[in-house]
Design a protein around this nucleic acid. Structure first.
Lengths: 227, 227
DNA sequence: CCGTCCTCGATTATCGATAATCGAGGAAGC
DNA sequence: GCTTCCTCGATTATCGATAATCGAGGACGG
């Protein structure tokens, strides 16, 4: 539905199931690659098969699971190759977001971004990797929301599955602090309301970590990777 | 499902229905804004409600229809605003595709692109707007396929609904010939295997027509309604 | 007259049951 | 011993029927 359900209209089983299942996937209760069996979900939640199937199909559209006819659904296992493919796409989208957001960003939004950076710093002090990544993602999402382009936001959100998979693959080769502080130039560019600069900073931010992720990986045998 | 069903596994009602319905939407048999009633589709194809619902949900994920709980599905009516939002997103994606494709493009692919341009020229001679747009879209799709980035291709395809809506809104202010010939620099850049140039040409190509579409529209301020 | 409440047909959401398909494991043939 | 075929339990795909919801139109009170 494009939903986002900012509004009302709750209590459609399919939607509730979708949220529940998604939460369980994100919590890792359903591990990547693991099957999700319709009949099990039915019994667990005491509902019928139809809403379960539709919820799973929603998750499929969100790229969190994949399905094959007569063989059911499994949590998507995102390969390193797919992750590598994500970087240029994401970098391009983030640049667009930065450009679009810079001229229209409000002080409120800047404050929110500041808060997220603060939250990341706090999480870094606690060495809480998960929290850092959550606030990291939220920081970027705020910029996309500020860009005031519904399509752009939606496309970016469709990469959630991949973005989240970074957690799995990111052996921390980069200090958490580096990740956190690399957001500061973005915020500054937005403060200056400089579209070109904000776009550039967003792009560089993504490309930087993309490059790190893969130069760091070169060493340990990367499969199917022509130079 | 990621499907694309390059492979086998046919004959799942939901998929067949999805294809049929999509074809009818694209043919304009279901007009934008028109409702698609589950029970009608059921009877028409002699199937039950479940596969119809799932097919419609697939189409929703593809952004061709939209749905609201208890109020059914209607063919998405893409506003000019949404169309305007598409241009920066598409421009960014096309640049990525051009960059990625240039270094790895084969002579076969270049020949295919040449063919599409030829087909566009022929269609122009016949003044067949629809055919021009079809080959136009195909040209771009070939570049995305050549870029060898499944995610990029998938994201681009998710804009199909919007791209197609251009047909509706594009009162021909630009000569068909201009559209056609504006593809030539892209092909040349790819021939030279110059990533930066190919990316730049792709981007400019989109931005050019985006700008045209909206400077041309400023004047009449029509709120989403062709006459 | 005008706004509110209610009813009712149309439609969607969910259910429970049946049919079709898959894959693992065992039997039969070589 | 190995391959091929077949059976069977598990699971998905589809069906037909029921429950819940919506919105238009009419009855009602002011």
């Amino acid at each position: 539905m494009a939903d986002g359900t900012g509004g009302l209209a709750r209590a459609v089983l399919r939607e509730q199931l979708r949220e529940r299942l998604l939460a369980r996937i994100l919590d890792g209760e359903f591990a990547p690659g693991e099957r999700i069996v319709e009949s099990h979900v039915m019994k667990e939640y005491g509902v019928s098969q139809a809403p379960v199937r539709e919820a799973l199909r929603d998750l499929e559209a969100m790229r969190f699971v994949e399905s094959f006819p007569h063989r059911g659904v499994r949590v998507r296992l995102i390969s390193e190759r797919e992750l590598a493919e994500m970087y240029p796409v994401r970098a391009a989208l983030e640049e667009v977001a930065g450009r679009a957001a810079a001229p229209v960003v409000t002080d409120d939004v800047l404050a929110l971004l500041e808060d997220e950076i603060e939250a990341m710093r706090a999480a870094t002090r606690d060495d809480d990797v998960h929290a850092v990544l959550v606030h990291d993602a939220r920081f970027h999402e705020i910029v996309f929301e500020a860009a005031d382009n519904a399509l752009l936001l939606e496309v970016w959100r469709s990469l959630h599955a991949e973005i989240r998979a970074l957690v799995t693959y990111t052996r921390v080769r980069v200090g958490l602090a580096d990740i956190v502080e690399s957001h500061v130039p973005i915020l500054q560019a937005l403060r200056q309301r400089d579209p070109a600069l904000a776009g550039k900073e967003m792009r560089h931010h993504i490309e930087h970590f993309g490059a790190l992720a893969f130069t760091a990986r070169e060493e340990d045998e990367s499969p199917a990777r022509p130079d």
